[in-house]
């Protein structure tokens, strides 16, 4: 695939070549043409959280392409990872853990005692072997999770973290002014509620067990799982009564 002629191709030419050449192979089932790249650029310019150089999509494509060319990776393996995180591993998993804990006091006790084992009971095994600790929010104690150093997050139960969790404002402020951060999420706490911030500095991954809202006494476990939100399991929101 790499011959002398292609070796002379520069970055911009690579964009044109991408639909025909190595990048189409590198992209596998997700191979995109120049139109998609152009579309990506338009979106990036609209993205006001972050400044992304407009050729990052191209640079990543070139990286993948050269690694395929060197037979170091198989694009199908990348497709499988992306598919897992886009379609199977996400906060619906954590919501099922929470709903089970709400309806089954013995499960809840096991969950708070040994989060790793209790979550494994529901078959949300974590390929990374994460050690899970679950903290319960109550009327007296409100827990929330941050990773001030980077972006540690319980992937198996919540999927990949949202941009705000990885952002500078959240990482900087969650520890020093958690009540202000919570208020921005619409979570107002009385002064006599204790706020506990869990900074994920090591290999422990934290999941918050939110309070079960009033008015849900007659809901089934499946219905309860539907009202559990991602943000409540990070601890920045409470779950509203239905």
């Amino acid at each position: 695939m790499a011959d002398a002629k292609k070796d002379k191709i520069g970055r911009r030419e690579f964009l044109k070549d991408a639909t025909l050449g190595a990048a189409a192979v590198a992209g596998g089932a997700r191979a995109a043409g120049a139109e998609e790249i152009a579309h990506s650029h338009a979106q990036e310019q609209d993205h006001d959280h972050q400044v992304v150089p407009d050729d990052i999509a191209l640079r990543v494509r070139a990286l993948e392409s050269v690694l395929v060319d060197k037979r170091m990776i198989d694009p199908a393996d990348l497709d499988a990872v992306i598919d897992a995180y886009e379609n199977r591993i996400g906060p619906r998993n954590g919501a099922q853990v929470v709903a089970r804990a709400w309806v089954d006091p013995e499960y809840k006790a096991r969950l708070l005692e040994d989060g790793t084992a209790a979550i494994a009971e529901l078959s949300f095994s974590d390929g990374q072997g994460a050690y899970m600790v679950v903290k319960e929010n109550t009327p007296d104690v409100h827990n929330l999770v941050v990773c001030t150093l980077c972006s540690c997050y319980p992937w198996a139960t919540l999927g990949l973290p949202p941009v705000w969790y990885k952002s500078s404002p959240y990482r900087a402020r969650a520890g020093i002014e958690p009540r202000s951060v919570l208020a921005e999420f619409g979570t107002e706490l009385d002064d006599d509620v204790e706020v506990r911030v869990w900074d994920s500095t090591a290999e422990v991954r934290y999941l918050i067990l939110p309070e079960r809202p009033p008015g849900t006494e007659n809901m089934t476990e499946e219905e309860l799982a539907q009202i559990v939100t991602r943000d409540s399991m990070v601890g920045v929101t409470k779950i509203a009564a239905p």
């Binding site: 992209g27 959280h49 990543v60 999927g159």
Partner: peptide, 22 residues
């Protein structure tokens, strides 16, 4: 301020998913 995004996708761009998987 912290700026949450409504209905945020797992990856905002195709290249983000490729980069994550790599």
């Amino acid at each position: 301020p912290v700026e949450p995004e409504e209905n945020e996708p797992v990856f905002h761009e195709t290249w983000e998913g490729r980069m994550f998987a790599l």
